[in-house]
Design a binder for these strands. Structure first.
Ligand SMILES: [Zn+2]
Ligand SMILES: [Zn+2]
Ligand SMILES: [Zn+2]
Ligand SMILES: [Zn+2]
Lengths: 137, 137
DNA sequence: AATAAAGCTCTAGTCATTAGAGCTTTAAGA
DNA sequence: TCTTAAAGCTCTAATGACTAGAGCTTTATT
């Protein structure tokens, strides 16, 4: 149905990345043509779209591998999937709050005005000395 | 004055990382003892503290290299330092807003409740199909 | 003198790709 | 049918910022 270039266009996943996913065992090894070229079916496209979407949502390859494995057994409990999503949400929240603290400090630093030369540069001084910061990073 | 382990304790930078910074040209090669061990002076400690703080604020090694180079010439214009700080602030802001969009989508996904098995799992369905999302990532 | 702690170099692994070299296969036009 | 261009293949190495480990030497303490 699709050669790798077509699959790449359909999903937005670059060709070397598709081959990498194959090597990592995220997608099944596709059928090869007589000339050794990868040939994908609709399921291959669907699985790659799933992976692309999960990656766009920031999930790790490991998380995705578990989700992919899971989704091949419809009768199993989906508890693990809920845990992964939940855990990842927490992870993103933590990341955001860390970045917000950073942003605060950086705003203070980046908006400093000074005489314009290195010797008395307030930005360089602020980077040199954490005691000038209001909080932790 | 300090051996590498002491420097590490003082700054919170791990020993292999200090050696890595040396190799990258971020810190000067220190004097060696007769037994080939690195021996740092006060300036070495100060420079490493600078680097640590800038890293904690999220600056890249490349940015830090420029700042370090710059700070050795006090008479030069510090325009470049201001640019780096500014640019980095923008970078952090962009990152935060991307993560917030992600958080929104993930909240929607992670808090879904369903019948508890993979076949009808709403989380897995949401990951499989971006059309179920409200926005871009 | 013996032992332990801390230092050294060098290599390789992490994560998720991406780039490039050097080759073969396939499709299309002359 | 021949030729060329596009697209595919494998394999290796690079990215960024470390980190871990093997196998060795130096230093400090008992
Ligand atoms: Zn300045
Ligand atoms: Zn600080
Ligand atoms: Zn479910
Ligand atoms: Zn989506």
């Amino acid at each position: 149905m699709y050669l790798i270039g077509e699959l790449s266009k359909q999903t937005g996943v670059k060709i070397p990345t598709i081959r990498y996913y194959e090597e990592m065992g995220l997608i099944e090894k596709p059928h090869r043509t007589s000339g050794n070229q990868r040939q994908y079916e609709k399921e291959g496209l669907e699985r790659l779209s799933f992976i692309k979407h999960a990656r766009d949502l920031g999930l790790s390859i490991e998380d995705i591998r578990e989700l992919v494995d899971l989704s091949s057994s419809p009768e199993k409990s989906c508890k693990q999937a809920h845990e992964i999503a939940h855990h990842h949400l927490q992870f993103i929240k933590t990341k955001i709050s860390k970045l917000r603290r950073l942003e605060k400090e950086l705003k203070r630093v980046a908006l400093l005005d000074d005489e314009g030369h290195v010797g008395k540069c307030k930005i360089i001084a602020s980077l040199a000395d954490h005691r000038l910061c209001k909080g932790e990073h």
